Simulated scan of single mutants.
Amino acid sequence: MTLTPTRTDVLIADDNPVVRAGLSALLATAGDLRVVAQARDGREALHLTRVHAPDVILLDVRMPGVDGISALPHLVCLAPVLMLTYSQEADQIREALLLGAGGYLIHGEFTADELVRAVRDARDGRAHFTPTAATAVLAELRSSSQTQPSVAQSTERVHNSVVFGLSSREVEIMDLIASGMNNQQIAGACFISEKTVKNHINRIFAKLQSTSRSEAIARWLGTARPGVTGRG
Rank of each mutant, 00 (worst) to 15 (best):
M181C: 08
I93H: 11
G222V: 01
S87M: 15
Q153H: 07
G165C: 01
R117K: 12
K207C: 05
Q88I: 13
T85C: 02
K198V: 10
I217E: 08
E114G: 10
S143R: 15
T155V: 08
A118D: 06
R157Q: 14
V158I: 11
G103W: 05
I177F: 05
V137P: 00
L84H: 12
T85Y: 00
N182S: 09
G188P: 06
R126D: 05
A218H: 04
N199I: 00
T135V: 09
N182T: 11
L138K: 10
Q185F: 00
A90Y: 01
R213V: 11
L84F: 08
Q146K: 09
I173M: 12
G103D: 06
E156W: 10
S154Q: 11
E194N: 14
T132S: 15
T147S: 11
G125K: 00
L141H: 01
H107E: 03
H128K: 12
Q209E: 14
P131F: 09
F191K: 15
D121N: 12
H200C: 02
V162L: 14
L208N: 10
L84W: 07
G165P: 02
L141V: 00
L98V: 09
E156L: 15
F164M: 03
R120C: 03
E156N: 10
A189W: 12
R94G: 12
D121K: 09
K195D: 07
T135C: 07
R120M: 07
Q148S: 09
F129T: 10
A206Y: 01
H107I: 01
S167M: 11
R213Q: 14
A136R: 04
A112H: 11
V197A: 06
E114Y: 08
A96H: 11
L141D: 01
D124V: 03
A112C: 13
K207L: 10
A187W: 15
S214D: 07
R126C: 04
M181H: 09
T85G: 01
S154H: 08
I201Y: 01
A152D: 14
D113K: 12
K198G: 04
D175Y: 04
V158M: 12
I177E: 00
E172Q: 14
Q184P: 03
S212A: 06
N183A: 11
E140P: 03
T211D: 11
L138M: 10
G102W: 00
A189C: 10
Q185H: 01
G100R: 05
S168Q: 14
I93Y: 10
W220Q: 05
S167E: 14
G102T: 02
M181I: 01
D113Q: 11
P149F: 12
I204C: 02
R169Q: 05
D175N: 07
L208V: 09
Q184M: 12
L115P: 15
L221H: 09
A122S: 07
I204R: 00
E156F: 11
E140T: 14
C190Q: 15
N160M: 03
L166P: 04
P131I: 06
R126P: 00
S167R: 15
C190M: 15
E170Q: 15
G125W: 02
H107S: 04
I177L: 10
P131K: 06
A118Q: 06
I177S: 03
